[in-house]
Amino acid sequence: MNNATNQRSAATRFIAPEVLSRIANLELLSRGVVEGFVSGLHKSPYKGFSVEFLEYRPYTHGDDPMHIDWKLYLRSDRLFIKQFEDETNTSCRILLDVSQSMAYGAKTVTKFDYARFLAASLAYFVVRQRDGIGISLFDNKLRETIPVKSTRGHLHNILNRLEQLETGEATQLGKPFHELADSFKKRGFIVILSDLLGDPDQLIEGLRHFRFNGNDVILFHIMDAFETNFQFKDIVELEDMETGEKLLLVAEEAKMIYEENLSRFREKIEKECGLLGIDYNLLETDKPLDFALFKYLSRRSARIK
């Protein structure tokens, strides 16, 4: 059974998001992605980073008897608790942008779908790491927050919520970020999944707030390939999905302006993120989810060290 799972995981690794989108069950999808990713790690130079055994410590009152190493007890007649790296009790908060603009996708997978897949995969991965996972949904305000927990049941709740999720209204990055930053009592990882289509200054302010509170922030800038490359042709009329504004333009000429503006925007965010020590990553929706998982994992291990 385990072998079969491994094989399936391997198969789903690097599976294109378009293919993943056909899997209706997010849990199944996320498990496939993560298992594939994890099994893949054995072959990677990063192996043993996270789920490896770390140390034993003497059992104290209050510890979960489940974690007692009974074999050692038999050998040494002492109760030891097996302590793994994930027992650093790191919490991960996923901030998922559910604004209207996230519903855009030139092909099969929308940014929103991609972000959900990624959120699900991350949640699964985090829980598998025994870390706590929480998720917050926002558009122009904070829509919903699922608190941080690390149980399987919690994961199940999160995945269910993600499955039922729909896009909301326009993006506003500043307000929900400040609200969240204030609500996070415990420092941890903050993974932002957003297309960032909002005021960059507000975004930076929000990020700064997170960082000020001592959080590690990973910013996944999710974009559609058409958004990064502006691959339209001829005359097109684009309709802003958030405002409904329409703009008739010659694609070839607008491309220049668009790319220039986007580049400037990204440079600004990237630069500010660099200054704030935030990991900024551009994710195009046609990229496999592994990339994001890897980014998260490497960032987490760096934090632990």
Binding site: Y104, L197, L238, N261
Partner: peptide, 9 residues
């Protein structure tokens, strides 16, 4: 074409 945002245009 519906588009995410026209902010860059």
């Amino acid at each position: 074409i519906p588009f995410g945002s026209l902010m860059f245009l």
